[in-house]
């Protein structure tokens, strides 16, 4: 039932982008998305696009990985392109009954698809080059200043780290329970939604019970080791910005400024 399930998208390749601090990468992705959405004409979009593609090339993640991901979006891309081509008014290029493809429509379609693909590449880039645990670490540090406003950044990161640590464990647990039920004659693949749901309840309850047991055990283990929350805790891997981080951040700022200026003029 769980065969072929991949957990996460991280590809450990050790490129310069992989080695960047997760905080830098989060900021880069946010800046990149802002640049792509700020761009109003082709020139500014090309500048933003070149920056995004440069980052993607530096990450050494193969084109194939992106293409595999874009399968989830291709319908959306096609729909966007078709709607733009047919519905934007302007000079007719080609017509099909009452529908007409316009020159402006084709230009708009290309622009929108380019924007869609760039946002997609950026978002994918983040998960290809950064492990989920590093992302949690990075967001904890980025959100740390908000602690003064009462945001429990450490606790949030702790919860997410526990979740990430136990996702594979619970997958295995679920697999074990499924096998146990199958050996008693249950069937999870056959039938419609209703019969699958009935079968699912025979794994749901043991799964819940085991998850609560595990959480009791873990909480007890943390208590006996005097876990008190974020105050005064030290960490095994301390995040520290390197020269590369500053270079990439400066480049991102420059791209944002250029796109901003191009959009204004």
């Amino acid at each position: 039932m769980f065969s072929g399930l991949s957990f996460g998208q991280y590809l450990p390749l050790g490129s310069v982008v992989h080695r960047l601090d997760p905080r830098t990468k989060l900021v880069l992705v946010l800046a990149g998305m802002s640049a792509v959405f700020l761009a109003r004409g082709w020139v500014s979009l090309v500048v933003a696009g070149a920056a995004v593609m440069g980052l993607a090339l530096a990450s050494r993640v193969g084109m194939r990985s992106y293409l595999r991901g874009i399968r989830s979006l291709w319908l959306l891309v096609a729909l966007t392109a078709l709607l733009q081509m047919f519905l934007v008014p302007g000079t007719r290029l080609w017509s099909l009954g009452a529908l007409a493809v316009t020159r402006e429509g084709v230009a708009m379609a290309a622009f929108m698809v380019a924007r869609l693909v760039l946002v997609f590449v950026l978002a994918q880039l983040l998960t290809f080059t950064t492990s989920p645990v590093a992302l949690v670490d990075g967001s904890e540090r980025l959100l740390a200043p908000l602690r003064r406003l009462g945001l429990p950044a450490h606790e949030m990161a702790m919860v997410m780290t526990i979740a990430l640590r136990f996702i594979p464990v619970l997958f295995e647990e679920a697999d074990k329970i499924v096998k146990a039920q199958v050996s008693r004659g249950a069937s999870f693949q056959a039938g419609g939604v209703r019969s699958r749901l009935q079968a699912l309840s025979s794994i749901l309850v043991p799964l819940f019970v085991r998850a609560f047991q595990r959480s009791d055990e873990l909480a007890l283990a943390m208590e006996v080791r005097c876990y008190q929350g974020g105050e005064g805790r030290t960490r095994m891997n301390r995040l520290c910005l390197q020269a590369d981080d500053y270079v990439f951040l400066a480049a991102a700022a420059a791209v944002l400024v250029v796109v901003g200026v191009l959009t204004r003029t």
Binding site: I167, V169, L170, A211, S215, L218, A219
Partner: peptide
Amino acid sequence: TRVLVEMGMMIALAF
């Protein structure tokens, strides 16, 4: 701590 751990475990289960 108990509540934090339960939150984490239930998130993993939800996933």
